[in-house]
Design a protein around this nucleic acid. Structure first.
Lengths: 110, 110
DNA sequence: GGGATCGTCAACCAAATGGTTGAATGTCTA
DNA sequence: TAGACATTCAACCATTTGGTTGACGATCCC
């Protein structure tokens, strides 16, 4: 059930959840820190994180009283492949992305 | 608005709409023929097609009394690129990544 | 122990979503 | 011109979704 198109696409349909995923691209985060930039309650963020977890897009691990959220990008693979099936759109994206990463890693030692 | 993540992902979140897109992969179809395999009213299918159209995922062209539906796979490009950005495990500069996405989407074929 | 912190639960609410039906509009054809 | 066909519109309905608040169970630390 998790990791299927029926859970992945609805999970990605909400802009808050997509923003959370983008934040987790930088680093693992605690629930409270995920919630900080958003103007909504912690409970609302907690629900979003639950949806992302059930979709397999993130994993949550509790250490002490802090629950850490970790991106699970492989969960997007199915949806990505599904979309590629429609695509005459080309891997120019990947090439450009690799160039982007190179310059990014060169200029950002942090 | 069309062709943005805020319309594409919600459009892809419904299984009926994804099935319609898969059907259109084979050939252009009239609205009635799109509706035929589904156990729901024509009006419901018409709404789904409107959502897909507003997302830019299909185009509808009326010839006579028949409205033809045609897949527009390039509309998935933005979402596809966005997801591929998560295929990387390296921590990256998010601002730069967003700038990258913008230029990437600007260069999308019309 | 006791107070602050982390996160979820439960009940609730408004709005959006996905469906229905029946009437309406436009177009083809006999 | 009349009738059949293709599609949408309008009103309505039930369910889901995304949010709130307040109480609660853990956990950390003084």
């Amino acid at each position: 059930m998790a990791n299927s198109l029926d859970t992945i696409f609805p999970a990605l349909a909400d802009p808050t959840r997509r923003a959370i995923l983008s934040m987790l691209l930088e680093d693992d985060m605690a629930v409270t820190d995920v919630a900080e930039p958003f103007e909504m309650s912690l409970a609302a963020i907690s629900k979003h994180l639950m949806i992302l977890t059930r979709a397999g897009l993130i994993a949550q691990e509790k250490r002490g009283r802090v629950k850490w959220c970790k991106l699970e990008p492989d969960a997007m693979k199915g949806a990505s492949v599904w979309m590629q099936g429609f695509g005459q759109f080309e891997p120019i994206n990947l090439d450009a992305f690799e160039r982007f990463l190179e310059t990014e890693l060169d200029s950002a030692p942090e």
